[in-house]
């Protein structure tokens, strides 16, 4: 591929991008810490409004900064697969939501892009996906930063070879889901009072009936649902990418050079045929 990432000879051009990435990451972490430390007792009044605003602006703004920093680094092959991932997220996520399932399945596209095109493309796909989904379902919008994190972690898992086997992909899904659930819980609580699908609400209701605070109940629900969801999503994506023809996988420099699928579509296979065409 002709432009896999920014050339190393342009440190001056890289600096603002790194600054944007650092600012985005810092804003997301600060927002999370602020929300979890604040934990407003009266969500419906007083501090609740600040918490909702901080949650919306902090996570959305952080996601936007990350996208602004990541996009210029992406190759054309990564860019053309991102709309595919976004469309898959929305189409399958909408279906799962309308069926009232306890899991979301709205990150299949993000994880697929992350596995094929890398953590940066995965993070950008997650954030943009939720921003576009917000045009049809505004409730998806504030979860953009969490979606970016899922893409980033899925890409890192792929980079470290965890998608070579279905069992390790499931383990990576469990960890990613747990982290994603922790990040998503404050957004769900402060923006929408943790109301979601009937399935997820049933889980929150169980914890609330045991006397848990709303944030605690939503966090436990997030840990349960998101972990289960990401295990299913990661396993599904692992099965899908292993079923893909080698030619389809080899068109992605990340999947090829990082040997995401082990021997299949790895460097040795690429060296036999197609590397010359990508120079």
């Amino acid at each position: 591929m002709s432009s896999s990432s920014a050339p190393a000879a342009e440190p001056a051009a890289l600096r603002p991008r790194r600054l944007l990435l650092a600012a985005g990451g810092t804003l997301i972490v600060l927002t999370y810490v602020l929300l979890v430390v604040l934990q407003p007792t009266e969500l419906a009044g007083g501090l609740g409004s600040v918490a909702a605003l901080v949650s919306l602006v902090g996570f959305l703004g952080g996601g936007a900064l990350l996208v602004a920093g990541v996009l210029p680094m992406l190759s054309t092959s990564s860019l053309v697969v991102m709309p595919l991932g976004i469309a898959l997220n929305i189409a399958i996520g909408q279906l799962a939501g309308s069926l009232g399932l306890q899991i979301y399945l709205d990150a299949i596209g993000t994880v697929l892009v992350a596995v094929l095109a890398g953590p940066a493309a995965g993070a950008a796909t997650g954030a943009i996906s939720n921003a576009i989904w917000g045009l049809f379902n505004p409730f998806a919008l504030p979860f953009a930063a969490g979606a970016a994190l899922i893409g980033l972690l899925a890409g890192l898992a792929a980079k470290h070879g965890l998608f070579r086997r279905v069992s390790t992909a499931a383990g990576a899904g469990l960890v990613t889901g747990a982290i994603g659930g922790l990040v998503a819980a404050p957004v769900a609580v402060f923006m929408f009072g943790a109301a979601g699908t009937p399935g997820t609400n049933a889980i929150i209701a169980v914890f609330r009936s045991m006397g848990d605070k709303l944030l605690v109940a939503a966090t436990k629900q997030g840990l349960l649902s998101d972990s289960l969801d990401k295990i299913v999503v990661f396993v599904l994506v692992a099965l899908i990418v292993h079923a893909l023809p080698q030619r389809a996988v080899r068109q992605f420099p990340f999947a090829r050079t990082q040997r995401v699928l082990g021997g299949r579509g790895g460097r040795s296979a690429a060296a036999r045929g197609n590397d010359a065409g990508t120079a």
């Binding site: 602004a68 996009l71 210029p72 991102m82 709309p83 469309a87 929305i90 943009i128 576009i132 045009l135």
Partner: peptide, 15 residues
């Protein structure tokens, strides 16, 4: 950013 314009436009058309 033209890449953002491409991704947004292309995604909306692809859904």
């Amino acid at each position: 950013n033209r890449k953002l314009v491409f991704v947004v436009g292309s995604s909306v058309g692809l859904i």
